[in-house]
Design a protein around this nucleic acid. Structure first.
Ligand SMILES: Nc1ccn([C@H]2C[C@H](O)[C@@H](COP(=O)(O)OP(=O)(O)OP(=O)(O)O)O2)c(=O)n1
Ligand SMILES: [Mn+2]
Length: 538
DNA sequence: CTGGGACCTT
DNA sequence: AAGGTCC
């Protein structure tokens, strides 16, 4: 018999605020918001009780609530660190590490295997001929190996809320599996609160979308289970725009297709068109979705309206596939200003690479292939539209023999500024409100072992082949060329020194500092990121 | 002056 | 390279 997956969706409550409260508990008692430039990106529940909204304009909120405390959240470092810590902590509890991350504060846990294993334990308590399980609770094992690790799990009651308030007729089969899932969800949330100090909202159902929507129906610090027999009732009352993966564009396309011709004058008004799942399901059909959205998206979104989500939990790799840093401004019109901003962004970007792409030995776990520069012109197109240019990422960023300052200078002058010129075209006149620097197409380094301390290579960013990794020990070791300061030369030093006749630029000893934790030697500029690596553990 | 991201598809 | 989704 086919069994449904058991999926848990977790969402940390008022996440950025919770992180701020973690480091400054005084904040817990007062209404406060986290802002980025002119917008409140989130606020704590004390503030929400007053009426402060997520994503509200800062000026509006302060007009209405002059005493609202404000914390600047433009630097995401601490939120990213906390997010990673909670992610790893939750992942350690899930067999097979089947955890997918969405943004900084949501996780999808595929706990199907854990449920199946424990259902089998429960079945062994079953008396042949009895109509139901003879026990009201049993010991849910969190470890296959150690039978003492786990929690006491009721089997006749559900933990937390019921979506649509509905209990199924029986607690058998897939329903029983979700009952156990609800208690597992509660246990995991308790661990996260007790050990890490963060409250969360949880949803339990048979796929990611239903679990996520169930969880969102009762916040904060609560959980909700949605049994599949009630999924359609649950969904039908929602506006399609509130279904995950149906954003503004998709909703507009769908409603345009449904109401084509019937409402051509006045569909700019929201509310003129009924966008509930129930209505859309009955006025449209799968073919209409496919015709308007394309085969792939049409198929997928039509299924979603019926509670069908085939996308399983895709475990998120430890290494990101892209890293980007951006800043916004009123207006930027001169090259010197652009140069200065790019410099600052490049320092941050390098630090991020050291934190997220380096192991504790200072070796690279992955290598971005491409550098991308994005900007937003002040007033062309709709708000938010960006333009970008990309090029091969110079391999000097992987060098451990150049100073941070030198690498940043090189990046700005040889990479970002040329890309910026390409972006603004011949006129050389510009007015931009955003700059974003990114390293993308991050490819995993050959997982040889921890003795790969460095990889220095260069590929065209269009090249899709495998990295030809090189062991440090295999490289000819020569005295590092004195390149710092030689940079005024129009050609500059060459950094494409693998597979070329150029000698490898390595300084084997007498460089940098030692890590006080592990003793690894590294350039001083990498030490700060390295220490954060230790703090986060691995 | 409506953040600062990250990921996926076309 | 652009456009879409999510947080
Ligand atoms: N458009 C968005 C949405 C979210 N976030 C950030 C701020 C949030 O703190 C965090 C998590 O997003 P949530 O939507 O889960 O919001 P919160 O966790 O803050 O609140 P809630 O308790 O409703 O989950 O991501 C953001 O910067 N921009
Ligand atoms: Mn949240």
């Amino acid at each position: 018999m086919l069994r449904s997956p058991v999926i848990i969706a977790l969402d940390w409550d008022a996440f950025y605020c919770s992180v701020e409260e973690h480091f400054n508990p005084e904040l817990r008692k007062i209404a406060f918001a986290v802002k980025q430039k002119g917008i409140i990106c989130t606020c704590n529940y004390v503030a929400r009780a007053l009426g402060v909204k997520k994503l509200q304009l800062l000026v509006d909120a302060l007009k209405q609530f002059p005493d609202l405390a404000i914390v600047n959240g433009e630097d995401l470092s601490r939120y990213r660190d906390a997010s990673k810590e909670l992610w790893y902590f939750a992942r350690d509890m899930v067999w097979g590490g089947k955890v997918e991350r969405l943004g900084f504060d949501e996780l999808f846990l595929d706990v199907t295997d854990m449920i199946d294993f424990n259902i089998a334990l429960l079945d062994n308590l079953h008396v042949p001929g009895a109509s139901s399980h003879p026990v009201s609770s049993f010991f849910f094992r969190m470890s296959k190996e150690d039978p003492s690790v786990g929690f006491s799990c009721p089997v006749l009651t559900v933990a937390g809320n019921l979506a649509t308030g509905s209990l199924p007729g029986d607690f058998r089969g897939d329903n029983l599996r979700l009952v156990l899932g609800s208690h597992l969800c509660h246990y995991i949330r308790s661990q996260i609160l007790d050990i890490k100090g963060y409250t969360s909202s949880g949803g339990v159902s048979i796929n990611k979308t239903l679990a996520k929507m169930a969880g969102a129906s009762h916040k904060p610090n609560q959980q909700t289970v949605l049994f599949p027999e009630f999924a359609q009732d649950f969904l039908d009352t929602y506006d399609i725009g509130r279904i995950p993966w149906i954003g503004h564009k998709s909703k507009s396309i769908i409603l345009d297709a449904i109401y084509k011709g019937t409402d051509s004058v006045n569909h700019t008004m929201e509310g003129a068109r009924d966008g509930t799942v129930f209505n859309v399901r009955h006025l449209a059909n799968k073919q209409l979705f496919i015709n308007s959205l394309g085969q792939s998206a049409g198929d997928k979104l039509w299924d979603l309206l019926h509670g069908v989500d085939q996308t399983g939990v895709q475990p998120t790799p430890d290494m990101p596939t892209q890293i980007s840093i951006e800043d916004t401004f009123k207006s930027l019109t001169s090259l010197i200003e652009v140069h200065n901003v790019l410099r600052r962004l490049s320092y941050s970007l390098l630090d991020r690479m050291y934190i997220d792409l380096m192991d504790s030995d200072g070796g690279w776990l992955g290598h971005p292939q491409t550098a991308r520069l994005s900007t937003r012109p002040r007033s062309t197109g709709y708000y938010g539209s960006r333009i970008s240019r990309s090029d091969s990422l110079p391999s000097i960023v992987f060098s451990n023999s150049h100073s941070r300052d030198y690498i940043v200078d090189y990046l700005v002058d040889r990479c970002w500024m040329p890309l910026f010129s390409k972006l603004i075209g011949d006129a050389k006149i510009f007015d931009i409100v955003l700059l974003n620097v990114a390293v993308i197409n991050i490819e995993k380094a050959p997982a040889k072992s921890s003795d790969i301390t460095s990889f220095l290579g260069k590929k065209k960013h269009t090249d899709n082949n495998q990295l030809d990794g090189v062991h440090r020990e295999e490289l000819p070791v020569t005295k590092r060329a004195k390149v710092v300061g030689e940079y005024a030369d129009s050609k500059g030093p060459r950094f494409n020194f693998l597979g070329d006749d150029e000698d490898v630029i390595f300084e084997e000893d007498n460089y940098g500092e030692s890590c006080v934790v592990c003793g690894q030697r590294m350039m001083s500029f990498a030490l700060e990121a390295h220490m954060r690596f230790h703090e986060l553990g691995d």
